[in-house]
Design a protein around this nucleic acid. Sequence first.
DNA 1: CAAGATTGATACGTCAATCTTC
DNA 2: GAAGATTGACGTATCAATCTTG
Lengths: 158, 158
Amino acid sequence: VVAEPIGWLSDAEQRLWRRLLSVECRLRERLDRELQAGGGLTLGEYEVLVHLSEAPGEALRMSELASRLLLSRSGLTRRVDGLVREGLVARRPCEDDGRGLLAELTPAGFSALERAAPVHVAGVRRYLLDPVAGPDGPVGLTGLAGGLGRIERALEED
Amino acid sequence: VVAEPIGWLSDAEQRLWRRLLSVECRLRERLDRELQAGGGLTLGEYEVLVHLSEAPGEALRMSELASRLLLSRSGLTRRVDGLVREGLVARRPCEDDGRGLLAELTPAGFSALERAAPVHVAGVRRYLLDPVAGPDGPVGLTGLAGGLGRIERALEED
DNA sequence: CAAGATTGATACGTCAATCTTC
DNA sequence: GAAGATTGACGTATCAATCTTG
């Protein structure tokens, strides 16, 4: 290994960093387009529906939903606004806390999710899971998951 | 391994997919903030300067730069507008093609890059390279790079 | 006053249309 | 006419300020 000047990245290091950005960007773009074409939903909208469908009562507090989606509160408010307009989500006051609101999956929202899910899942398999599991055994799968996990921990240690 | 209903993802599969999105998002966010605090540049602006600094003559065609940055042409026009206003980049007509424009790094742009680079590089090392290289040997590094490479190929095969 | 949610102002990206040059 | 670059219209995110309730 050739030493690099302090404060700069080697070619290999720079490639890894850029590849992480570019892969995530292209993958998200691809899945977003396929989902819009096949299911009529944005990837962002789809993710709201998925999280609601996984929650008890198919409803979540706005705040909680925002943090699960890595979205600001105002960002979620606006995303949910759109879904409410389309009738896929409904807002309902929170029983035990008058300040809170629940976002709730409507029957139409559940139908939209059922229609979109196969499209999304096929994309995730095709572009992420299958290639990473690979023909040479699932080496890539644990490698990828492990690497991402280490980064996650480093970010959380702050 | 437990079989999953056709058209859905297992927990582990879903975790991998979500982890990829979340790690990229949080990492980009962190590096963007550190760069703005320490270097006065957006991560997006920084990336323009880096690519220009690597190019022969420290200049690139708008079109070429856009594709390297995974940005639309109009998106790049606007990003460069900002950098021109700040005096970090200049536009220059293209010698051999009257339609083309070159974005060129100015001396002020080079200085800004020199000031910002150590901040950025430290962040990439701290949150990406060091954790992934790990204390248990660089297993994670090749694993991560390999996994990302496989996804890249799958996306390019269309 | 602190926390949950929304709104206004703003930043930054895309697509479609346009202008200029090949 | 096709390609390079820009512009206009728009979508969608953030931050700071606001309103409501605990």
